[in-house]
Design a protein around this nucleic acid. Sequence first.
DNA 1: ACTTGCAATGTTATATCATCACATAGAAAT
DNA 2: ATTTCTATGTGATGATATAACATTGCAAGT
Lengths: 172, 172
Amino acid sequence: MTRAIQTKNEKLPDPVGFATHDHNDCIDTAIAAAETHCANNGVRLTPVRRKALEILLQEHRALGAYEILDRLRDAGFGSQPAVAYRALEFLVTNGSAHKIERLNAFIACAHSKVSHVPAFMICTECDSVAEVQSNLTNKAFGNAAHVAGFRIEQTTMEAVGLCPVCIDKSKT
Amino acid sequence: MTRAIQTKNEKLPDPVGFATHDHNDCIDTAIAAAETHCANNGVRLTPVRRKALEILLQEHRALGAYEILDRLRDAGFGSQPAVAYRALEFLVTNGSAHKIERLNAFIACAHSKVSHVPAFMICTECDSVAEVQSNLTNKAFGNAAHVAGFRIEQTTMEAVGLCPVCIDKSKT
DNA sequence: ACTTGCAATGTTATATCATCACATAGAAAT
DNA sequence: ATTTCTATGTGATGATATAACATTGCAAGT
């Protein structure tokens, strides 16, 4: 469950698509995207919110609110749950992060540039989480909703199972 | 949030497809289906489990574990959380009930006869929940998973929004 | 019939996740 | 400068969930 801290210029497998990628400046990019988005929408990416997003971006995995709270406190912010929950609510509302309902945890958005319906694959073995680009999926749900006369505001799509890495491990 | 108790021979709108249906013997039918399923799989539908399923079937809506626990206690069973959680885990594992992750609540399965991938529409206004028959939806998710090399074991698909009834209400 | 084994239940305690209410501080609007 | 509104900090509490262990009851093997 613990995971190595990301060091500079290192490439390691991470759960964005369960594939290796260069993590180096994806944090800066994502923060910049969030700032732009906030500016465009007349909301503020305050220090706590920004720090919370940074924390989520450090690791591409889902973090519990209290885990985030710990790190916010270490960074000099408030130490009560509401501090974390408020920052997270903001990030989720503004599309910079998603809540993984299955885990009661939060993860930085992996597709912050494009409008998308988030979908996730969650490994039961190593707890890694991959965000899937999946508008087709939503279309199918949308049909059912249309027939029923239901007006969708937000969808949650999460698959639990085994990631490729853990499938390999289980074979040996 | 409260909902009228179902009385005999009455037809009322309920959240199974947000449409009116005859509720009269759907409880008996579902219990019978669960019993058959248990017999076929060498597991036991014990009194607590059966009662928990009955409780869920009484209303076609999502009930929290503690709400179920209250009623189990009233029926003479144990009064501690584990009692409810264990019965619910059993029902979920055996397909007689589903957990609604968005609500941290449980609901009787509306399609207990057929194998299916559960999907739900949840009204933010009246808290009604409709189970959707939606294998197509899963196929789309399955494609993404296949490409990623992820082995899906279980999926959660939930849409929140407004049900037809509440859309109508909001128009007036 | 005994007893061994196992699944299910009950209970105590505690862990984990989340929100409410209210005070204070700081930015934006007038 | 004053007002207003948003954001933050804190204390208290609520809601959801599991761990650990004792007890019971049934069923298989002898």
